[in-house]
């Protein structure tokens, strides 16, 4: 199999390090958005795993995905500290506002909703993470404001 030059470049820092598969999976996903079937066969060759073993690893971890999802990921914390701050209500408000269930992606592939267990912002819950930014004492209004500010979503 001929590996795409692009993927070769992405994987090269991790090929010779111990336990390089995890950082390699992160890198592939950061660059390409998800880990495709072609990527899996290429990863298997580079790291000397079987394809099944690569899939085995990918599917164990919540962060890795085999299909594309939204460009922007909204993660709503549902752990205990946020529970005490009504995160379940927020979850239901947000899912109805975006008309999306958890793990669903908007039809324009812009937004995916996910749940997460603890963002380490427990003192200021309920917490939500939009891409890499955490929003404390989150409300639907704050989330919408953040999406506008970052030009993720302009329409209501």
């Amino acid at each position: 199999m001929i590996m795409s030059t692009n993927l070769k470049k992405i994987l090269s820092p991790f090929v010779d390090i111990k336990g390089g598969l995890m950082p390699a999976l992160h890198a592939v996903q950061d660059h390409l958005g998800f880990i495709s079937k072609d990527n899996i066969s290429e990863l298997a060759i580079v790291f000397n795993y079987s394809q099944a073993e690569i899939i085995d690893v990918i599917t164990f971890y919540d962060d890795f995905r085999l299909e594309p999802i939204g460009k922007n990921i909204i993660k709503l914390c549902q752990a205990e500290a946020c529970q005490s701050q009504n995160c379940k209500q927020l979850l239901s408000d947000v899912t109805s506002h975006f008309n999306l269930n958890l793990d669903e992606t908007s039809s324009d592939l812009n937004i995916t909703l996910k749940e997460v267990f603890c963002l380490g912002n427990c003192a200021l819950g309920p917490s939500v993470m939009i891409n890499d930014e955490v929003i404390g004492e989150a409300t639907t209004k704050k989330i919408i404001g953040h999406l506008k500010k970052h030009k993720i979503q302009n329409n209501e």
């Binding site: 752990a79 603890c118 380490g120 427990c122």
Partner: peptide, 11 residues
């Protein structure tokens, strides 16, 4: 890997 809900001292 500070995963416990309600913890942030490592962070």
């Amino acid at each position: 890997d500070e995963g416990d809900g309600g913890t942030f001292s490592d962070r």
